[in-house]
């Protein structure tokens, strides 16, 4: 017996398995980042002094990174749309751009981190930097996870397009859901850490 509904939709839920699975996973991610945001609020409200983000951090670089990550989200959704229109070449292009954007994001982030370390601002310096490094670090790990996933789908994983095109399109959609979530987290991290 094969496991049903890996590709076709179950009639009463209208979903294939992986889509429900990834949304459940994202729900748990919401709680993970929610707990960290909640901790941030508590620590900030309870602190005697809390530096403004713009005093400590590099806004232009972070704005650049925001633009880069939003762009990668668009290219991701475009790569899925290309598969839907059966244009595999365009898929390769857009997915490649998505990975490139993610790499740029990490490089910029590395420069930001490097600068902080140069002037001795480690996570132990104060609670603001502690939560800054924790939140952006965890987000960075998610970016790395996304790069690994997308690179697989861009490279070796894409052979599935020839054998099971629908299943492959579903995979890209599911990977996209994860990647948009990573973007979404950054959309909240950016103002909370840098602008307030």
């Amino acid at each position: 017996m094969q496991i049903p509904y890996t590709v076709q939709l179950r009639s009463d839920t209208g979903l294939f398995n992986a889509k429900l699975g990834v949304w459940l996973f994202l729900a748990s991610e919401v709680m993970l980042f929610g707990a960290l945001f909640s901790s941030y609020v508590l620590l900030r409200v309870g602190a005697d002094h809390w530096p403004h983000g713009w005093e400590e951090l590099n806004i232009p670089l972070a704005t650049l990174n925001t633009v880069v990550l939003i762009s990668s989200s668009v290219t991701m959704v475009m790569s899925w749309a290309s598969l839907k229109m059966s244009n595999f070449k365009k898929y390769k292009l857009y997915m490649g751009l998505t990975i490139l954007c993610a790499l740029i994001f990490l490089v910029v982030k590395a420069f930001e981190y490097g600068h902080k370390f140069e002037i001795g601002h480690y996570p132990s310096y104060n609670t603001f930097l502690a939560i800054y490094f924790t939140l952006t670090g965890l987000h960075g790990l998610h970016v790395i996870g996304g790069i690994v996933l997308n690179t697989y789908l861009w490279g070796p994983g894409s052979y599935m397009w020839k054998t099971e095109p629908e299943r492959f399109t579903n995979r890209v959609e599911v990977a996209g859901l994860y990647w948009h979530f990573v973007d979404l987290v950054w959309i909240f991290l950016f103002p909370v850490l840098y602008l307030l």
């Binding site: 991610e29 993970l32 707990a35 960290l36 901790s39 480690y122 996570p123 490094f133 924790t134």
Partner: peptide, 18 residues
Amino acid sequence: PPLEAAGILQLMDRLAGT
């Protein structure tokens, strides 16, 4: 997940000196 978050924060406290 909230415990995972708490675990990450405590790990930071122990390893990164936060």
